[in-house]
Design a protein around this nucleic acid. Structure first.
Lengths: 211, 211
DNA sequence: TATTCAATCCCTGAAAACAGGGATATTAAT
DNA sequence: ATTAATATCCCTGTTTTCAGGGATTGAATA
């Protein structure tokens, strides 16, 4: 019997997934969580084999939750799940201990394949995810890799930018000079490969850095 | 027997929903659609009582699809569905013929309540949706209402802004003068109540105008 | 028919963002 | 001990956006 936990911030998705897995032999949904924190707590207190983990969640996102889970329990398998076909999420999840990744626009078959593959101790990525990873690899292999993970400060600045604050206003709010904010801005543009503020916010959404 | 069609752009959500409704007496999922266009076509060719319609979809969104469906078949009931708790979507759906609305963060119970209520010919909005509508009503009742619906052109410009094009570049791409683009920009800022480009993109995402 | 609305075009001046340098202190990792 | 990353601060000049006017056309609607 494979014990599965579902972590997603949309109850209806959880309910649907539970119904999907309900009648399947060998699979049992033993719990649900609407954010990363709940997922981690549940796994510490109960026996869970596989966590189906959405990446974008409030409180604690899927990447952080996976990292936390992997630290305490190496036997636990995490299956990453997201709407966005963004390579950074996929890479972050796999780097931090996830054993598989599928997109929400793939269907039931891929999900079941993934669960069974993970339970055997192997890695599963759906066909589309594989393409994304391959394309990403080919593009980056020759160049030096930029650390696209944002620092705490950068994330703060990003959030301020998104709600419409100007550089000066952000400086006042965070008690730093406007020059500093401009530096963070530059680094954000670089890291998120954006040409201007509009694209910055757009890319931040695409990567789920804002919700 | 209630014949249900599910329209959502995420296959996994459709599969989950199908599983959820599978074993229920009196309900039968007779079809699925991954965009508004498919939903409309399916309803023209098959007998459908209720369409569970996601708002954010490619090709043709839920609002447009509902409008189209309502023109040809008044007996058909549409249940609006979205992740975002944005009052504009809810209002747009209900104004254009939807008989109910629920959010994806509500669970199975609300969904079933909604389906049965709609089938009886009544209107259903979940508790949370009701709160949103009430708050919206209280806020707007005294003021004149701004038509926040974007024109086609404005939507085009919005999309260009989001991918990082400048006013000049947008003008070149859409074969209009930069002055015209600036006008659209101004109207967009006004309609989406944004102070600048960053907040504009942010609000557009929050309302699901970009995906 | 009159009016409203979308879409187009035009202008100016101020504010903000962007490109592009450079610099220092602290901390964490190699 | 050195390096790398983070966070901080500074400057200049150019480009872009924003706020604020105004105007015309055509289509749809009341």
């Amino acid at each position: 019997m494979i014990n599965v936990l579902i972590a997603d911030d949309h109850q209806m998705f959880i309910d649907g997934m539970k119904a999907l897995l309900r009648d399947l032999p060998g699979i049992k949904v033993v719990g649900e969580a609407c954010n990363g924190k709940e997922a981690v707590i549940h796994c510490q207190e109960n026996l869970v084999d596989i966590v189906i983990m959405d990446v974008n969640m409030p409180e604690m996102d899927g990447v952080e939750a996976t990292k936390a889970l992997f630290k305490t329990n190496k036997n636990l398998k995490v299956l990453g799940l997201s709407m966005h076909r963004d390579r950074h999420f996929i890479a972050d999840m796999l780097k931090n201990g996830a054993s598989g990744y599928i997109l929400k626009n793939t269907g039931k078959k891929d999900l079941l394949d993934a669960i069974h593959t993970l339970y055997k101790g192997e890695t599963y990525v759906s066909e589309e995810v594989n393409k994304i990873l391959l394309a990403s690899f080919l593009k980056d292999s020759s160049k030096y890799e930029v650390n696209e993970r944002l620092s705490e400060r950068e994330t703060e600045v990003l959030e301020c930018i998104a709600v419409g604050l100007t550089t000066l206003e952000i400086g006042e709010k965070l008690f730093i000079s406007k020059n500093t904010v401009e530096s963070h801005r530059k680094n954000l543009l670089y890291k998120l490969k954006a040409k201007n503020t509009a694209e910055l916010v757009n890319n931040a959404y695409k990567r789920g850095l804002i919700n």
